[in-house]
């Protein structure tokens, strides 16, 4: 048990995050004040939620590049509803956001399932379509803070047990996803489909349908994040969260979710997002230029992937020996 803990990727990642924080604290002790750490966590919450959705998709050997565009489109939809009909209550708006997001995710899933188009192509296409629709809907106009109702903006900032609602969303969704992947048949199907689609077919699992559901979940979480994002920053426009899908995929990769499918944990995706969040929050404090920040984030991704690759290689040789024995 102890040996397994020590070799677990999640533990290594947690240690790396703590080391990173300690390193920053040596120069900037203010960084590790509780309030600052909580702020950093709150800032990272949208990334955590999206990474959890992305994790489910990647587990099934797919990828969802449309999450940030989905977020922008649902964000614009709820912001426009709010400006037109300020009386619509926030919980209803959240439901609208989740439904709109899951419809977009379901579209990705249907195209992958029924037309057998590679997911990277499907979501690259829908990513552009969703972004385009934000422009069509808003006619390129911004929706600014003064146009939004007070309750619309206040919801994610409300505090409960000293933690903003936004942070609570990240925590609760992480718990729900843990239950889903470890305690439901669907969760088991995600791992089976990604781990070995052929074997999954023989076990009576519909591979396409499972991937469709993964995309729908990812879409629903992107839609929810759309509302949270727009209300927290109190602005909606065409380019919000531009390029954020790459951060989401990066968080998963850093967290040890195998791009080849079938391998990954909620803790991994969660910590991967935190790792990126710490870097993004700390670098400006240290006074590193935004361009260097990009380079550092990129380097972190490559190191994580290289780590994954070397981990996989040693395993691969073992499998090969079995196969040779079979063919011989």
């Amino acid at each position: 048990m102890i040996k397994r803990l020590l070799t677990s990727r999640e533990l290594i990642l947690a240690v790396a995050i703590l080391a990173l924080i300690a390193l920053i604290a040596l120069k900037f002790p203010a960084f590790i004040e509780t309030s600052n750490l909580l702020d950093a966590f709150n800032d990272t919450s949208p990334l955590i939620i999206l990474a959890l959705g992305q994790m489910v998709v990647i587990l099934t050997r797919c990828i969802d590049l449309s999450v940030a565009a989905n977020l922008a489109l649902t964000g614009m939809i709820v912001a426009m509803i709010n400006t037109q009909f300020p009386a619509v209550p926030v919980p209803l708006l959240i439901i609208v956001a989740i439904i709109a997001g899951s419809l977009m995710g379901a579209l990705n899933g249907l195209l992958t399932w029924k037309l057998d188009i590679p997911p990277i192509v499907v979501t690259l296409g829908t990513m552009t379509i969703f972004r385009g629709l934000v422009f069509v809907l808003s006619e390129g106009q911004w929706i600014n803070a003064h146009e939004m109702s007070a309750s619309f903006k206040a919801f994610p900032r409300n505090e409960f047990l000293n933690l903003p609602v936004l942070s609570w969303f990240a925590i609760i969704i992480a718990l729900l996803v843990i239950v889903m992947v470890s305690r439901t048949s669907l969760g088991r199907a995600f791992y089976a489909v990604g781990g070995n689609p052929n074997a999954a077919v023989y076990a009576g699992i519909d591979v396409g349908r499972t991937q469709f559901l993964a995309f729908t979940i990812s879409g629903a979480l992107a839609g929810l994040t759309g509302y949270l994002w727009v209300s927290r920053y109190a602005v909606a426009y065409v380019d919000i969260a531009g390029g954020f899908e790459l951060d989401v995929v990066a968080a998963c990769v850093i967290g040890g979710i195998s791009i080849a499918g079938g391998v990954g944990t909620v803790a991994g995706a969660f910590l991967g997002a935190i790792f990126l969040g710490v870097i993004k929050n700390a670098l400006p404090v240290i006074g590193i230029s935004p361009f260097a920040q990009l380079a550092i984030s990129g380097a972190a991704i490559i190191i994580a992937v290289a780590f994954n690759a070397s981990y996989r290689n040693t395993k691969g040789r073992l499998i090969l020996k079995h196969d040779e024995a079979v063919n011989g």
């Binding site: 070995n196 023989y202 079938g262």
Partner: peptide, 12 residues
């Protein structure tokens, strides 16, 4: 027949 490919999910 092809248990490597169709039989098991190795990483679980």
């Amino acid at each position: 027949e092809d248990r490597g490919n169709q039989g098991t999910i190795k990483d679980t």
